[in-house]
Nucleic acid binder design. Structure first.
Lengths: 211, 211, 211, 211
DNA sequence: AATGAATGAGAATTCATTCAT
DNA sequence: AATGAATGAATTCTCATTCAT
């Protein structure tokens, strides 16, 4: 009886080594990539015995996949959660822009991991990401919004796919090449720049598609 | 150019192993990154003895730097060479857009390498690239162009830096995340998409900044 | 037998994990040998917690010894039990042959373990087995039987040790190299082959030693 | 020119590390089995850098297979070479018996390896051995010899397969269980025992099959 | 008895780099 | 320039064993 109770108590406080490993590994993989990451270093930084990493994840590569799964799911969840309500075009765009900023403007670790994956032509992670995006319905929703506005005559006739890509790249693009941009333009107040960026994107885009 | 001439001049034609190694290494580094690249594999693919790589380049890291130097210099040269003449805003933009397409729309190897470098916060390569860009005067030139057009009243008053970033990301952004975009939008004719893209960028941008 | 009774008598039926572990370990050691066996796998197959194996057996090697002790004792017991009554030579031989078939024709696990032990020059298990055999009096009994028959003039004068070895190897030998024999001779009905074998051994041996 | 000559000279004295590794590994695998063998120990005993083992053999398992290939080929070659001429039954048998003694009475290393393989039900090595044996035609040749002699009336009617198995096990069997036999029968002069054994086998077998 | 987590000492394998020729 | 062999320091992964509860 006491044992059962103990077990139940334990369930509420499961060993958090696994979590610590995942968090530590995220940073390691972001810094060094899959091949450059060192299991030893992860273990040391996570303050766990190296064997525990194999106990929970069975291989470095698998740990990598788990890290991505975990954090990508988070990012996607954010995107979905902040999904703009389609009140009118402007507020919808502002919603999107804000969501990008929230998802990628903060923690740079996942950005690093994604960049490295983008470098591999047939990366499974990229394929998965694309599929998740597709299935999320977000791109379609954006395209439909454009169609509707064109029909309404609110915006001029544009190539919808290209317009979508323009919007995405204006948003995501900065987060990807931030290290270059920041240096070229001597940006020191990153947060302020992002706030300006959000406005500038909506501004340029809206004017750009208006009749 | 001078280099080419030198090579051709030499009567005692040196083995072109060095060149072959650089080309093979480019592909290897693009595929696997610096830490994932294998000297063995480069040697095998280049069909040279592994020791020769050390004979010519003394270390893997040095070979990597040589590869980047060589191909980045090429890219920068292209950017400078195609540098738009400032006839009027539209043709200038078209020139820029075309230059991006020429520089990054073809061989994806350097894109991969750059993506991986962008993933590292303090990448020396990124810093170098940023410096080269800065010193090239291209950003400044673009900003000045905007200033002039604003003064002329040709375009409306905009945040110049943000506008520059928007323009760059609309251009470069696609090449960076092409693997995702292509899959999400089911793009099979890449070349055609790029042609459309060039027009769409200029179109959206021009309308976007017009008074 | 006494052991079985004990187990059944105990009202506070102890968990039979120990037994299950021994049986599972037998299979594991037979398949992979001592060094190839995995405590994890034994635990998993026995459906017990790995630590329980150490609780009961304190080490892998000790578990191995327990397994051998248990099953070798069984085999020896069988050999003793079936020990032929020395009515006449033929029935005695038939008894022996039958005993071998019963001891080694069924479960191949102990055969595997013995084969691996035979592969080690100074295997303690082999030494123990030899001692048990020696002390069992079986070889001596066989040799005496031969002596008596030679005195009686029932069989011709032969080297008794070699004759013993011939008899043992004809019996045991098949069980040891069965995997090869079965394949070379395309034997599919193993049981039938063993029945034939029993007759053939007695037949060849008897004729072979007759005057 | 000088270089070419040098190269040719070198070809006559290729690095013998590979050979040394194979010989050392044979002993290691015989002693400890595949899973018990240590690459470190092989390297140390062979006095080569551990990495060289992977340079030549790419994995421990592959080294094991190469060792077996090499030495099994040797053994089979011996068996074929000593293949008895079918003058008459007795000399043929003597030839066989002698061949077994030559093949298995000397170096015990391969015996150990074979014993461990026999312990694994679906050992590829065992299957290969059986196939080689089959294809060698030896068993068939023996069976045919028995048939002919039965037709001639030289020997009595016997189950040919069983008779073959009896002959093989009388020969091979001793070499397999020598550690037990030697101890049970207090054999110290192994070589002398083998000489006696050769005679005893032929003697018992011949008498056993005679009309 | 029983469990999940943890540990530490290996053991296999890899790989950049160097050497001898 | 070129090659095959060699080296040594990692690096990933394994596994018997133990601990805390």
């Amino acid at each position: 009886m006491m044992e059962n109770q103990n077990n139940k108590d334990k369930l509420t406080v499961p060993s958090n080594s696994k979590e610590i490993i995942i968090q530590t590994a995220l940073v390691e993989f972001a810094k060094y990539g899959l091949s450059g990451a060192r299991v030893d270093r992860i273990a040391k930084n996570a303050k766990v015995n190296k064997a525990m990493i194999y106990y929970y994840f069975s291989s470095k590569e698998n740990l990598y996949n788990e890290v991505i799964k975990r954090h990508l799911v988070d990012k996607i969840a954010q995107l979905r959660y902040h999904l703009a309500q389609n009140d009118n075009l402007k507020t919808a765009l502002e919603g999107f822009v804000d969501t990008y900023a929230k998802a990628f403007g903060g923690d740079r670790n996942m950005i690093s991991i994604i960049l490295r994956e983008l470098a591999q032509p047939d990366s499974k992670v990229v394929i998965t990401m694309a599929n998740i995006l597709k299935e999320s319905g977000l791109p379609e929703q954006f395209l439909k919004m454009l169609s509707k506005e064109m029909e309404n005559g609110t915006i001029r006739s544009v190539n919808r796919e290209q317009t979508l890509v323009s919007f995405i790249t204006m948003n995501l693009g900065y987060y990807l090449i931030a290290p270059i941009i920041n240096q070229v333009l001597n940006i020191d107040n990153r947060q302020q720049f992002i706030e300006q960026r959000k406005k500038a994107i909506v501004d340029l885009f809206l004017k750009g598609v208006m009749v």
